[in-house]
Simulated scan of single mutants.
Amino acid sequence: MTSPDAPPLIPEKWVTCPQCGGPSLYAASNKFRPFCCERCKQIDLGAWASEQFAVPAQPGPDDGLSQAH
């Protein structure tokens, strides 16, 4: 039994690493969360930096693609 002054116990939460698919502890003690390790975090960062995760967008009416009359 815990004392009334003790903080409530928080169960461990495990998630799937978005990079390798392995288990990853989602807690403040895992400084790479939601990734399982620094390597997975760096791989993901590199993919973002090289625009591999770019969101496709439709050109808008002001994108300069229309012909000027």
Rank of each mutant, 00 (worst) to 15 (best):
M1E: 13
M1C: 06
M1H: 15
T2W: 06
T2M: 08
S3H: 13
S3W: 11
P4Q: 06
P4R: 09
P4K: 15
D5S: 11
D5R: 11
D5H: 09
D5L: 09
A6M: 13
P7G: 03
P8T: 07
L9C: 06
I10H: 12
P11S: 13
P11E: 11
P11K: 06
E12A: 14
K13P: 02
K13Y: 09
K13G: 01
K13R: 15
W14N: 15
W14P: 04
W14G: 04
V15G: 08
V15A: 12
T16N: 04
C17D: 14
C17H: 01
C17Q: 05
C17M: 05
P18E: 08
P18G: 10
P18Y: 03
P18C: 08
Q19S: 10
Q19R: 10
C20Y: 01
C20T: 02
G21Q: 06
G21N: 03
G21A: 06
G21L: 04
G22K: 09
G22H: 05
P23L: 07
P23C: 02
P23N: 13
P23M: 09
S24D: 02
Y26C: 04
Y26I: 00
A27C: 12
A27K: 10
A27Q: 14
A28R: 12
A28F: 07
A28I: 09
S29P: 00
S29K: 14
N30R: 09
N30T: 09
N30E: 08
N30I: 11
K31I: 09
K31T: 11
F32E: 02
F32P: 00
F32Y: 15
R33D: 01
R33H: 07
R33F: 07
P34E: 04
C36W: 00
C36M: 02
C37G: 03
E38Q: 15
E38H: 12
E38T: 06
R39V: 12
R39S: 07
R39Y: 10
K41H: 02
Q42V: 11
Q42L: 14
I43L: 15
I43W: 05
D44R: 01
D44P: 01
D44E: 14
G46H: 11
G46A: 13
A47N: 12
A47R: 14
A47C: 05
A47Q: 14
W48R: 06
A49F: 01
S50N: 14
S50L: 10
S50A: 13
E51D: 14
E51Q: 14
Q52F: 03
Q52N: 05
F53V: 01
F53S: 03
F53E: 03
A54E: 11
A54S: 12
V55S: 08
V55W: 02
V55Y: 07
V55K: 04
P56I: 07
A57Q: 14
A57S: 12
G60M: 02
G60L: 08
P61Y: 01
P61Q: 02
P61N: 03
D62N: 08
D62G: 02
D62P: 00
D63T: 11
D63L: 04
G64W: 01
G64V: 00
G64E: 05
L65H: 09
L65A: 02
L65P: 03
L65Q: 10
L65W: 05
S66V: 13
Q67P: 01
Q67N: 08
Q67R: 08
A68Q: 14
A68V: 13
A68H: 12
H69F: 07
H69S: 13
